[in-house]
Structures are given as C-alpha cells and as structure tokens.
Nucleic acid binder design. Structure first.
Lengths: 177, 177
DNA sequence: TGAATTGTGTGGTCTGACCACTTAAAGGAA
DNA sequence: TTCCTTTAAGTGGTCAGACCACACAATTCA
C-alpha cells in the first residue's frame, strides 16, 4: 500500500472552510455567519463537528455566539486566547520568576520603542508603564504585556522605571526597510 | 425578577474542570488524561460537550489526541494557538510591523538577561538569537519568542545583533527579591 | 515459541431528539 | 386603525445512542 494519507479531521476541515467562507464573503466584525445547521448542510459535516470547530474558535475569541440569535464574528482586538494559554502556561513554580523577567523585558522594549518614535517624554514616566505601553500603538505588544502583567502583579517601582528609561535612550531599534 | 445569573456553559465548565484536574493530579507533558467517556462520566457532562472542550484545547496545542490511544498533555513549547490566531489576526498591514518590533524587544531583553546572568559571551553572538534565547532558561520568554519569530520570518542581521548586545550591557535588571 | 485472532478501549463522526432563548409574524382586543 | 398578546419559526446548548477506525494487549492456535 502506498502512502495512504489520513484525511484531515472534520473538525479541522470545518475550521478551514469556515475561515475560507469568512474571507470569501468578506465578513467582518459584527457580521453574522451561517447557523450551525446550515453550516453542517453546506459543508456536509455533522453538526457535532461543526460545533467543535465553532467552540474552538469561540474560545479563541474569534467568534461570539448568542443563543437564539446566531454566531457572529468578533473584533479580533479582544481575543481571549492568551489569558487562556496563561492559565496553562503559568502553573509551575519557576515560571513565576520568568514572568518578572519577561515583564521587565517588555517594559524596557516598550520604552525603547517610545523613544524611537519620540512619543515619550521623561515627565510622562510618572505614569504607570501600563499607560505608556498603550502609546506604543503596538497591539501585539499591548496584548502580551497585559497578559504577563496580569500574572506578575503590580509593583510600582519608580526607581526601576528610571533605570529602564536611561537604558532605553541608548537603544535605537533600526527601522525596518 | 432578580439577577437570575445564567450558569456557565457546559463547554466552559468542562475546560475549567479539566484544567483543575490536571493541576490537582500534577499531570505534566506526555501524561495521559482520562478518556472522553470517563470525563463525561466524572464531570456529569455529555460527551459532546466534553469533546467540544477537548477540541478547543487541542486547537490551542495544549493537548494531543491519538485515536485508539487517548488524549495526552502536550509540551507547551509547541502550542499551535499562534499560527491559528495569525491566520485571523495577522492579516492586516500594521500588525506586520508590530511583530518585528516585539521580536526585537524580546531579543534585546533576552540578551540583557543573559548579560545579567553572566551566561552570555561576546563570541557566542555568532550564534543565532534563537539559540541564545534557549540559554536564558526562561520558558515563557522562549515560548513567546518562538511564536513571534514564527511570524516575523528569519533575518540574520548580525549588525543589529551587535548593537543589541552593546545596549544589553548597559542594562542591569535588578534581581528580584 | 511465534504468528494470527479476538476483545476491549479509545478517539472520530453522525443522527435525532429535546430544551432555552430570541425574534418576528399572526391574531385579537381596544 | 393601533396596541398588546399569542404563536410560530429559527438558533444555539446539550444529551444519548449508535457506528466506524484504530491501537493495544490478551488469547488462541499452528
């Protein structure tokens, strides 16, 4: 017998086809996607498998379901995935130290970005780092920091902040071509 | 009528309880978790709902299912969530820049940590940043970097690396108490 | 001993049946 | 007519049962 590739699970197939459908029909946040039963029909996949796919996408925060109404595309900005991951990832003991390191790294980097963009001012450092990060206008950075910060707890350490800024001034991230 | 809070969906309840079970039983990567039918029994939740939960966790790369064998905890290093999210999230144009920034931030921070720990040596910089990051012994940092890096693509920019190291030397993350 | 067979457990999938809820249409009272 | 009530249809939420495909270990048989 040659290869005999195993076909992808209906579950994954459903996700792929739903994604494709969204893209093809130019659906955006807030738009409604077909009902579970209709999807099951159109994709020739049992409703169970369609639901498994939808639930997974929902857990990721990519869609939103409202009983009696339907399933809607969500604004990707507020995806849930990371807090989710966190609960799994941040279990161990060592990770606690790691969190502090990563948080510091992100904060430093954030400042560096601000300095590069000349958005930041020394005075503004009286604000919390959280507010500063919002100014980076980097959604990805914001997301990650928010998550980390969520697990690190608050530590308004002004002294550390000053050191970070000093370091940040030294850094010049090369603008990408 | 007062509040009348809606009970959380079985789907979410299943996820929560499975997580709790994992924590309680001290299960780690590679370990097997109860079968779908047993979970359905123990949690008093229909197998369909249990499956929806498991599929979602699988999509995140947190568990792995093998037909005929069972469901196993996966090493968090290779969680799938980001490629997944990516197809939804990283469509736009701006996000692409964000990725580069975050990647640079992490790399810089990584070097700073290495310098602090006196683990890094100038010579070692001939290696890729990826290998350096492994030495930080910071799982969280490794995870995030791997994800980001996955979307940023490779750019072996030695010059940038040198600048980063110089900056890193200036930085002294205060050891946590 | 060693190979083939069987049995059991597991995930993968589908179907049909309810329930709870939302919305809009249909109906009747003013 | 207008307004409220009732009804119907559509949707997600959940469950139970039934198969199938597969992996593994126990059993059987040559």
């Amino acid at each position: 017998m040659t290869g005999s590739v195993r076909p992808p699970s209906k579950f994954l197939a459903a996700i792929a086809q739903i994604q494709e459908m969204i893209k093809r029909d130019r659906l955006g946040p807030g738009d409604k996607i077909p009902s579970e039963r209709e999807l099951s029909d159109r994709l020739s996949i049992g409703r169970s498998s369609v639901r498994e796919a939808l639930r997974a996408l929902e857990l990721l925060g990519l869609i939103e379901t409202r009983r009696g109404e339907g399933t809607f595309l969500r604004d990707f900005k507020d995806h849930q995935l990371v807090p989710l991951i966190g609960t799994f990832l941040f279990d161990g003991d060592q990770t606690k130290e790691d969190i502090h390191d990563v948080k510091a790294i992100l904060e430093l980097g954030c400042l560096a970005v601000l300095v590069r963009n000349e958005t930041a001012d020394a005075k503004e450092l009286t604000n919390s780092v959280g507010q500063l990060i919002e100014k980076t206008d980097n959604r990805l950075l914001q997301s990650i920091w928010m998550i980390i910060s969520n697990y690190a707890g608050n530590d308004p350490d002004d002294e550390r902040l000053q050191k970070l800024l000093a370091s940040a001034r030294e850094i010049q991230y090369s603008k990408r071509q």
